[in-house]
Design a protein around this nucleic acid. Structure first.
Lengths: 167, 167
DNA sequence: CGAGAATACTTTGATGTCAAACTAATGTCC
DNA sequence: GGACATTAGTTTGACATCAAAGTATTCTCG
């Protein structure tokens, strides 16, 4: 029997079918792609947050710490942080504030520009971010359940997509 | 000249280099992939929300309306909604509450199960979701700036990734 | 040099998400 | 049949994000 197996179960495939049946065939694959992206991101971020939570970090704060740890002096204007991580200034303020409360970062006025605020990672911040980076590498980034060739092809495709979206 | 062009500018490529230089080469491509995913999702969702905002919808609420409109009677238990959209029950409660406040949905007790709550799309809800779907198809899902073959390959890769992550 | 524009953040308010606790109704099992 | 587990939602609290408004500082020009 070559019947079409109807045990779809995948909500995204179901949605795609609905799109086609509604006469939106020309947008169905785009919708399926976007939905897949959203869902995969959700799963990965969920896993990451779950791993970081016991360490008192969120992914947003981890990224800030990670960026500071990579920077030459462990210090950056918070504006630069937002720029590099591509997040809203208000989000940076929020993250840095909480990191400072946790003693992982220290803020200070930028002597070179009175409008600017510098964020500096503390020794405790460095220790924590190193441990968390290794944790994420070991548990998430390294063993991603995807074929490496597919992964890299997707990364490339996403890069051009990002460009096309004005990134 | 076959010099390696250093005008990277892409924050993700910068991060990948940092990863490799730190000795995490085995996780660098996974990190780059995850980061690309997160960023692309962010850009797409941002564009979608921007388009829906004038209509008083968010993507979360749009998805609920869309699902109800596709359902046989335009009615579903809110639990089913969360299951199909794969969102937390609390998020469904929140979305349905706001949709109801906007007159796009009506809630009622499920006669078949006293614990369950039914959400039904209203005529106004149908009109709005049709208009918004066509808007998103025309502005986002249809003209996605990505090669169709790459897009579909990525969708397939993401699907297996989702499975591998327990979706 | 002084007014107005631009820049760098912070604050506030609205939204969304998830975890955990709580309520109510249904099921299961001696 | 009644105690206990399970299921369906809601509520509450902690966080994150973005838009918009507010504050302070620096830049630009006539």
């Amino acid at each position: 029997m070559d019947t079409v197996d109807t045990r779809v179960a995948d909500p995204i495939e179901l949605a795609r079918r609905n799109w086609v049946e509604a006469g939106w065939g020309d947008a169905a694959d785009g919708m399926a792609f976007v939905t897949s992206l959203v869902r995969a991101q959700q799963l990965l971020l969920g896993r990451i947050e779950e791993l970081l939570r016991p360490h008192g970090l969120t992914f947003a704060r981890f990224e800030v710490l990670r960026l500071l740890a990579f920077s030459r002096q462990g210090v950056l204007p918070v504006g630069k942080v937002g720029e590099r991580l591509q997040v809203h200034p208000a989000s940076v303020t929020n993250a840095v504030q909480r990191l400072e409360d946790a003693g992982l970062v220290v803020r200070s006025a930028n002597p070179a520009d009175g409008r600017s605020v510098l964020a500096a990672i503390t020794p405790a911040g460095r220790r924590l971010v190193e441990a968390c980076t290794e944790l994420l590498n070991r548990e998430v980034f390294g063993p991603l359940p995807i074929d490496p060739a597919d992964r890299d092809a997707a990364t490339a495709a996403l890069r051009s997509l990002r460009r096309g979206l004005g990134d």
